[in-house]
Design a protein around this nucleic acid. Structure first.
Length: 844
RNA sequence: GCGGGCGUGGUGGAACUGGUAGACGCGCCAGACUCAAAAUCUGGUACCGCAAGGUGUGUCGGUUCGAUUCCGACCGCCCGCACCA
């Protein structure tokens, strides 16, 4: 039998699947099949498929094919997250049109994805830069606006004065723009926001319903939302104004020794106008970077404003009002009261500026008079002291008491505070979804009625700042309300908006509304979503927010978009460096044992740790080269083998060759099936163990795939293939049955090979049209089983026990073992524990 | 600092609700076939020991007839967040 020709077979079967339109999901699904929506995070069209994509889409395809075979009505679509900066960079650097660049990349990547043999319904494909998609997104944005989920507000932004654009925090490096190198300014701009904070509580509570999400992701989202319960309270200041602060520790109010404002607090800013020293102090505070290490070491800085604040329970008790660098404007009210004894930051600050430190919470069992706070603040539980009417209370009771009294006095209110902030979506970028608003001198900011607002055909990247702002022909328009002259909003939406609802669009990508409710309600939620952990917070939180917002507008029934989430690990590879410390690519080296040498000249190369494949480390292997050398099934099999899918996988040549060997091995086994009788002909004489092996594999591969344990499913298939190879003398029909099981079970992982083998086994229908095999439980029951015999918990022997043997008989068999008698050493058993079918433990 | 996760052979990793630790793959060793190589096949491969046997799942302790699994303390590694009041 000829060697398996992966290239020929894969092309052939891909065409065959296409020809029969096997993976096209009908728009109007009828019948009583259960639905299953399998989705992988759609890619950015960078131009090339990388190993991370290959792993992601292989996993998704394995699930999709498995579910389809099981009889589910499967939706498995693909699209392109196609707006974004790389296209602009390419346009600027190479003078191409970002649209052309993007669509060319999409075509190239689609061709590569097709080589992987994915069971995707390509009729539903779209790119977020398609006018048809962003048209609907503009509608959705206006729907959200009308519902009050969108607002326009002032935002402090990072402004690059050279590039004339807003920068994301990540794009500010050492206070300078990443591209221009110009010192970034803080600027207040009118920007569009999503009111995601209105959904903070339900987004938090919703996490508890997501039982098929990784705990890790739920924890990250929980922390990001950052709910804390506390008290908002008012201090009366010596300048006759009031100051609101937020605290989670109102119980420590009598330990207060100062009040502190953020440098960005409006009151600070106001005072700075007439106080040059304060101005200088604010500048000093800004110098401190936001890098982790800096914050860790950053010294507490304070500035005494000269104002004093009256204690809420004793107006004569005056506290100094400071400006402190560690108080964040973005959290709570941007002002705090400092209680040094029970907060480390306040303590550091108080020690530096000579403020008093009064312990007011004393650990239970300790004497208040003797309790001293030294260099470490006490944040544990205890009872109140030095706190007038709170003395003796527990922390919890004291919190409640203070809240009660201040609320009664109108000086405070219990509140829930969130770390989550509203989502700023305006971007001064030309390659994105235009924000469908018009600015009219007379009517103000008015929603566009005439949608879509299309991007201009040509974008001029030679201008400073946003080309859309410079393009007068494009941004000059008339007001939808009064018909007078007006200009378009020249900002585009954050690309995270594009990916916040695409999963709903796949239900009916041609709908004339953003989502077709009927189709979306049938398909949503996504049953299995698969992607990288890097999207644990932003993308997944935004998509959850969008789904809840759409739910409130009756666009979809579901509140959560993704019922099952799986975050796959990265693909890594060894790294190499030459004598000069330059990275060396894997295809420039030869390995000899553990050592590596340059192919060219044989100079030794240092072998470094396995790290995520990246261009900068030059340790990238392109999937297309592997497909060209071995075929798609080999790369697919590799991606699913050995390493659990959530962990990082290391790509190795040896591993790839091993996978290739297995492909050939399965093909050889299938070839040996020629002439074997079809299943069911003379099964009764079939080798029992062969049949048992096949049915055990069916049961366990099915179970492993249900739980996405691809690596364990793969191991079971190796076991089955070993069993088939070893059972040459088994009954022919049993061998055939086992082979057919092997082919059907491996089809989700290696679909092309499976089709080729299936055909070789004489079938005319495709594997892709064949139902998933079912195991016969009676075949898994054996007449006898092996039981371990322990003496005092130590294994001494194994015995073969008839299935229906009674305990006394088992005990007798166990005691009859020579090794057991030796271990007993003449002693009498005190107790014999028998776990049926598993173990006998003799205790002496 | 806070939160989450993980420590098993040379290596990636198995082990269901506590019940024969190391499945399966990679690598390695030996052998068969071959003029030779590749490919393929067969056998072996936790550690110590000739063997009987002993020791082994990061360390120490606990619960149990029995612990990789449960509990406690510690050590180490990874990830996320971070001056969040």
């Amino acid at each position: 039998m000829a060697r398996y020709n992966a290239k020929e077979s894969e092309t052939h079967w891909q065409q065959e699947w296409d020809r029969r339109a096997l993976f096209v999901t009908p728009d109007d699904p009828s019948g009583d099949k259960p639905k299953c929506y399998v989705l992988e995070m759609f890619p950015y069209p960078s131009g090339r498929i990388h190993m991370g994509h290959a792993r992601n889409y292989t996993m998704g395809d394995c699930v999709a094919r498995f579910r389809r075979a099981q009889g589910y009505n499967v939706l498995h679509p693909m699209g392109w997250d196609a707006f974004g900066l790389p296209a602009e960079n390419a346009a600027r650097d190479k003078g191409v049109n970002p649209r052309d660049w993007t669509y060319e990349n999409i075509a190239a990547m689609k061709a590569e994805l097709k080589l992987l043999g994915l069971s995707i319904d390509w009729t539903r494909e779209f790119a977020t830069c398609d006018p048809a998609y962003y048209h609907q997104q503009q509608k959705l944005f206006l729907d959200f606006y009308r519902a009050g989920f969108v607002y326009r507000g002032e935002a402090d932004v990072n402004w690059d004065p050279v590039d004339m654009t807003v920068l994301a925090n990540e794009q500010v490096i050492d206070g300078k723009g990443w591209r221009s190198g110009a010192v970034v300014e803080r600027k207040k701009l009118s920007q569009w926001f999503f009111k995601i904070t209105d959904f903070a509580q339900e987004l938090l509570e919703g996490l508890d319903t997501l039982d098929r999400w990784p705990e890790k992701v739920r924890v990250m989202q929980r922390n990001w939302i950052g709910r804390s319960e506390g008290l908002r309270l008012r201090f009366e200041l010596s300048n006759n104004t009031g100051l609101e602060i937020f605290t989670t520790r109102p119980d420590t109010l009598f330990g207060a020794s100062f009040v502190a404002l953020s440098p960005e607090h409006p009151l600070t800013q106001e005072m700075a106008r007439t106080n040059p020293k304060l101005q200088a102090f604010i500048l000093e505070c800004r110098k401190t970077g936001t890098a982790e290490a800096e914050i860790e070491k950053a010294e507490k800085l304070g500035f005494d404003t000269g104002l004093t604040a009256g204690h809420p329970f004793d107006a004569n008790w005056r506290l100094p009002v400071m400006v402190a660098n560690f108080v964040l404007m973005g959290y709570g009210t941007g002002a705090i009261f400092g209680c040094p004894a029970h907060d480390q930051r306040d303590l550091d600050f108080a020690r530096k500026y000579g403020l008093s430190v009064t312990p007011v919470v004393v650990p239970d069992g300790q004497d208040a008079a003797a309790f001293v706070v030294g260099a470490e603040a006490y944040t544990g539980p205890g009872h109140l002291a030095n706190s007038r009417f709170l003395d003796g209370m527990s922390v919890e009771d004291a919190k409640a008491e203070v809240a009660k009294r201040l609320e009664a006095a109108g000086a405070g209110a219990r509140t829930v505070n969130y770390r989550l902030r509203d989502w700023l979506v305006s971007r001064q970028r030309p390659w994105g979804c235009p924000i469908p608003f018009v600015h009219c001198a007379k009517c103000g900011v008015v929603p566009e009625k005439n949608l879509p607002v299309l991007l201009p055909e040509k974008i001029d990247f030679s201008v400073k700042g946003n080309p859309l702002a410079a393009d007068k022909a494009w941004n000059t328009t008339t007001c939808p309300d009064c018909g007078g002259p007006a200009t378009r909003d020249t900002d585009t939406l954050d690309t995270f908006v594009d990916s916040s609802w695409y999963f709903a669009r796949f239900a009916d990508p041609k709908a004339q509304a953003p989502v077709n409710a009927k189709a979306a309600n049938y398909w949503l939620p996504v049953d299995q979503y698969i992607g990288g952990i890097e999207h644990a917070i932003l993308h997944l939180l935004y998509a959850r927010f969008f789904t809840r917002a759409m739910n409130k507008l009756d666009m979809v029934d579901v509140k959560e978009p993704f019922a099952g989430l799986f975050t796959q690990g990265m693909v890594c590879h060894e790294t190499y460096k030459d004598a000069d410390g330059n990275w060396v690519s894997p295809d420039e080296i030869v390995k000899e044992g553990n050592k590596a040498f340059l192919k060219d000249g044989h100079a030794p190369v240092e072998v470094g740790a396995s790290e995520k494949m990246s261009k900068s480390r030059r340790n990238v292997i392109a999937p297309e080269t592997i497909i060209a050398d071995y075929g798609a099934d080999t790369i697919r099999w590799f991606m699913l083998s050995d390493t659990p899918p959530e962990r990082d996988i290391e790509w190795t040549d040896a591993g790839a060759e091993g996978c290739w060997r297995f492909v050939q091995r399965v093909w050889r086994l299938a070839g040996e099936a020629e002439g074997l009788p079809p299943p069911g002909t003379d099964m009764k004489n079939g080798t029992r163990s062969m049949r048992a092996a096949a049915h055990k594999a069916i049961a366990s591969v099915t179970d492993h795939l249900e739980h996405l344990r691809f690596n364990s499913a793969v191991a079971q298939l190796y076991t089955l293939s070993n069993a088939i190879a070893d059972a040459k003398d088994a009954d022919g029909a049993a061998r055939r049955e086992a082979l057919e099981a092997l082919v059907l079970l491996s089809a989700p992982m290696m679909p092309h090979l499976a089709e080729e083998c299936w055909k070789a086994l004489g079938h005319t229908k495709l594997v892709a049209e064949t139902p998933w095999p079912k195991h016969d439980p009676s075949l898994l029951e054996t007449d006898s089983h092996t039981m371990a015999v322990q003496v005092n918990g130590k294994l001494r022997a194994t015995i073969s026990v008839p299935r229906d043997a009674a305990n006394p008989a088992i005990e007798a068999m166990a005691l009859g073992e020579e090794a057991v008698q030796r271990a007993l050493d003449g002693k009498t058993p005190k107790k014999v524990i028998i776990v049926p079918g598993r173990i006998v433990n003799i205790v002496v």
